[in-house]
């Protein structure tokens, strides 16, 4: 059975975690998310969509389930994995003082899970003050340090200069930080959590399009052998508006095996997978991003710098 992607959403109290989760549950785009939350009461679930409510779990008509963490995250997660055959993706809301990167490591000791991304929200109006606070400063800094992708929320509540300054501050304290500005945690769900397993964007439903902005998509397909180092360099050079990349690749230094690329924010994971077998010997790379993602032509130019050796 395929491993379930495991995403952790972190951020200090008030940064917008619940807002993002509400978007996820409303606009799941055909995927069945299991969402583990700290406070049931804060999640805004349309009661008409609830198909079952069993104490610590709410089932929704769109296939998603929402589970209360209560006082034990690990126990809640173990319980969710009992239902693994009915879900496609596990999302955990870290508590406001937890270190989301530590929680994400659970995927590395749980064979049913695959670490996806650590998304950390920061409140543009207060993140710098919080990070300097006597009691919680180190907690906030740990959260920011562990982020694969930073969502700088409440961007509408500060002026452009402040937004630029806070973005620069975040980038200065973490090498390669990817910072995406957002208002009311509005970031395309598919760009944050990836596409449905068939690889194609789900047909947008009325609810989904209303709840989240559109996702931008760019793809590359080639039969040639790709240079690993140059590809990784190109990916690292992408702007923050490119939120994810997924690829099944044929690399010049490992042509006999499929190489699987997985990128969320600044974290790039390339692992060698099974031999090609009867699959077509072809590399496919997909980038997902916000509407601010560079134009196709610009991305074409960037990836044209990656050497590809033609095969006879």
């Amino acid at each position: 059975m395929a491993r379930l992607p495991f995403t952790v959403i972190g951020g200090f109290l008030g940064a917008g975690k619940t807002t993002l989760l509400n978007r996820l549950l409303r606009g799941s785009a055909g995927r069945r998310f299991a969402v583990l939350v700290n406070d049931f009461g804060a999640v805004d679930i349309d009661s008409r969509l609830v198909t079952a409510h069993g104490g610590d779990t709410i089932s929704l008509a769109n296939g998603c389930i929402c589970c209360s963490i209560g006082d034990s995250l690990v126990l809640a997660l173990v319980r969710v994995l009992e239902k693994a055959d009915r879900i496609d993706h596990v999302v955990v809301e870290a508590s406001g003082v937890a270190d989301p990167a530590r929680i994400a490591e659970l995927a590395l000791i749980e064979p049913m899970l695959e670490r996806d991304g650590v998304l950390v929200l920061a409140d543009a109006t207060s993140v710098q003050a919080r990070a300097a606070d006597r009691h919680v400063g180190d907690t906030v800094q740990r959260q920011l340090d562990g982020a694969d992708l930073l969502i700088l929320n409440k961007a509408d509540l500060v002026d452009a200069a402040q937004l630029a300054q806070t973005t620069a501050w975040l980038q200065a304290r973490q090498a390669g930080a990817r910072v995406v500005p957002a208002v009311h945690a509005e970031v395309a769900i598919e760009a944050l959590f990836g596409l449905a397993s068939n690889g194609a964007p789900a047909a947008p439903t009325a609810a989904a399009s209303a709840a989240t902005p559109p996702v931008r998509r760019w793809s590359l397909s080639t039969r040639g052998l790709i240079d690993r180092a140059a590809l990784l360099a190109a990916l690292a050079a992408l702007p923050a508006s490119v939120l994810r990349a997924k690829g099944i690749l044929r690399l010049a230094d490992a042509p006999l095996q499929r190489s699987v690329l997985h990128m969320v924010g600044r974290r790039i994971d390339m692992r060698s997978d099974t031999p090609w077998g009867i699959a077509a010997l072809r590399s496919d790379l997909v980038l997902l991003g916000t509407p601010d993602m560079p134009a196709d032509a610009e991305l074409d130019r960037l990836f044209a710098t990656v050497p590809v050796t033609p095969v006879a």
Binding site: V74, L77, R102, E105
Partner: peptide, 10 residues
Amino acid sequence: EIAAKYMAYR
């Protein structure tokens, strides 16, 4: 810590 707790239940 969390790895221990998780493995105990798992």
